[in-house]
Amino acid sequence: MISFTKQGAGNPIILLHGFCETKEMWKTFSVQLSESHTVYCLDLPGFGESSLKASQLNLEEVAVTLHDWMEEQKIQKPIIIGHSLGGYVALAMAELMGSELGGIGLFHSTAFADDQEKKHTRDKTITFIKKHGVEKFIDSFVPPLFSAQHQVRLEEEIATLIQYGKKTAKKTVIAYIEAMRDRKDRFEVWKTFGGAKLMIAGTLDPAIKIEASKEHEAFATAYHELEGVGHVGMFEERELSLEYVQTFLAKASNQMLK
């Protein structure tokens, strides 16, 4: 079962949250975007109120699950924007569905697979969680996603993300770390996907290095860097991020009408 919210009217937009996040992270965005679009915010399988049956999964299976959900909801030609893990899922959906999608957006995400250093870090994280549990992991995981200059100002937002993250089952957290570690490189999907493509990157992102993000620019419909921002620009630079998304959606919607 996929838990989701639906707001507004117009061309459909699907917003996918990141690792150990939930659909609630998009509340501000969904209100604003619903003035011109039908906005779906959903919990990925295993997060929030969406169920996860298996203890092992891969991103291709998640893409198929969301494709089935789209068919149930009769959603046609959506633009899918994903934060971090959500971007990996959006790329897997683009590979699966191709022209059935109107566009994709990578919000602090990447089409590249993990390198060996990143794989090693994920393995260490799994070991930590098995030993210490999800709550202790979330306490140390969430704050550094925000750049140092924004952490004090956004204490409330950090606390909220920690609260939601701690509700995630251990099997879900480990299953998704493994899925991210083992995901395939989809840079060719990014290059060749025929719909509109958005990338928003943070110059101080600790998870997605800005140098890697820059390599996506040549193939993007719209590419933006948020100065001094870490991994969560929808909080750190909310208004500017929203403006970038709105501009992209307006242009993509006009292009689909042609």
Rank of each mutant, 00 (worst) to 15 (best):
H108T: 12
H108E: 04
S109F: 04
S109P: 11
A111D: 02
A111F: 03
F112V: 09
A113W: 01
A113Y: 01
D114T: 03
D114A: 02
E117N: 08
E117F: 02
H120D: 05
H120I: 01
T121K: 00
R122S: 13
R122V: 09
D123N: 14
D123I: 01
K124W: 00
T125C: 03
I126D: 03
I126P: 02
T127H: 10
I129W: 06
I129T: 07
I129M: 09
K131E: 14
H132P: 08
H132A: 14
H132E: 15
V134Y: 05
E135C: 10
K136W: 05
F137S: 01
F137V: 06
F137W: 11
F137I: 10
F137H: 02
I138Q: 00
I138E: 07
D139F: 05
S140I: 10
S140M: 09
S140N: 01
F141T: 05
P143M: 03
P143Q: 04
P144S: 06
F146H: 09
F146P: 08
S147T: 05
S147H: 06
S147F: 03
S147P: 04
Q149K: 12
Q149N: 10
H150P: 11
V152T: 15
R153P: 07
L154H: 08
E155D: 14
E155G: 11
E157S: 15
I158G: 05
A159V: 09
L161N: 04
L161S: 05
L161R: 07
L161T: 02
I162P: 10
I162F: 10
Q163N: 09
T168F: 15
A169Q: 05
K170Q: 12
T172R: 13
V173I: 03
A175P: 06
Y176T: 05
I177M: 07
E178S: 10
E178I: 06
M180G: 09
D182V: 06
D182Q: 01
